[in-house]
């Protein structure tokens, strides 16, 4: 990547990346609306979806301000193509069954929780403020997904099998979460953010502890899939965006 990345450009990249992660993860969870395994879980998972979409609004608004070209949170969410999205591949993966959804959310939560904790010390006032607000929500997300990991992993033979399948399937997207990009290096240098690699140990310790309690085994993956932050996505993001963006694209500028 470009070595002459300015701090402001790096800040924009970072805010956009945070917004994209939370928006895409939130949108995926929102697909459970009315489809949850029980009424209570239907409400729970869509509460989490709303939390994440709310956080995405904060990050994308900040990104729009930093960019200074007059793009609003809605412009950034609804008028960009998949190649312009910088979310992790993990976030865009389809829901699958309930266990698969929980695995994706749990892996993301472990990373998200550590990152937000670290961002509390950011020298950028708005980043620290968004992190502080988000952390309360994400603390609950992590608690919720951890409990479901354990409940289903250490559940019936069928639930255990499904959780292990989900883990085996999603694990290859985990490595990307702890990759340092040029953006991260510029921001870490200026104490505006931290290197993702610095979060890995704490996040992995938590993941390992939960997997142990859930009687699940950690998959052995040699090659992690990456590319999301550069806009190189799996086949699923385009379809997700087509659904998510269909109304604003069909009726530009409409409000209700």
């Amino acid at each position: 990547m470009d070595n002459s990345l300015s701090p402001n450009q790096a800040l924009f990249n970072f805010a956009l990346h945070m917004g994209d992660n939370t928006l895409i993860a939130g949108h995926r969870l929102s697909e459970w609306t009315s489809q949850g395994p029980a009424l209570e879980q239907d409400i729970a998972i869509t509460n989490i979806a709303l939390d994440l979409v709310g956080q995405a609004r904060s990050w994308l608004s900040l990104a729009g301000e930093l960019e200074g070209k007059g793009r609003s949170e809605d412009d950034l969410a609804y008028l960009r193509s998949d190649r312009e999205y910088t979310n992790f591949l993990l976030c865009e993966q389809p829901n699958g069954d309930w266990g698969m959804t929980i695995v994706r959310q749990f892996l993301f939560d472990c990373y998200h929780f550590e990152l937000l904790n670290a961002l509390l010390d950011s020298k950028h006032e708005q980043i620290a403020a968004i992190a502080a607000k988000s952390l309360k929500e994400v603390t609950y997300h992590l608690r919720y997904s951890s409990e479901w990991m354990i409940r289903l992993g250490d559940g019936t033979p069928e639930s255990h099998k499904r959780m292990q399948n989900g883990l085996d399937e999603r694990w290859r997207f985990l490595g990307e979460l702890f990759e340092d990009t040029e953006t991260d290096k510029v921001l870490a240098e200026a104490e505006l953010s931290v290197l993702p690699s610095s979060l890995e140990e704490a996040a992995m310790n938590r993941i390992e502890a939960v997997l142990k309690e859930a009687t699940l085994s950690q998959p052995e993956v040699k090659h992690f899939q990456t590319g999301g932050r550069k806009g190189i996505h799996s086949e699923y993001l385009g379809h997700l965006l087509a659904v998510m963006q269909s109304v604003p694209r069909a009726y530009p500028g409409q409000s209700w």
Binding site: L39, E40, I43, A44, Y144, R151
Partner: peptide, 9 residues
């Protein structure tokens, strides 16, 4: 789970 469901619902 009941506490969490109560919180969510």
């Amino acid at each position: 789970m009941a506490i969490e469901n109560a919180r969510d619902v």
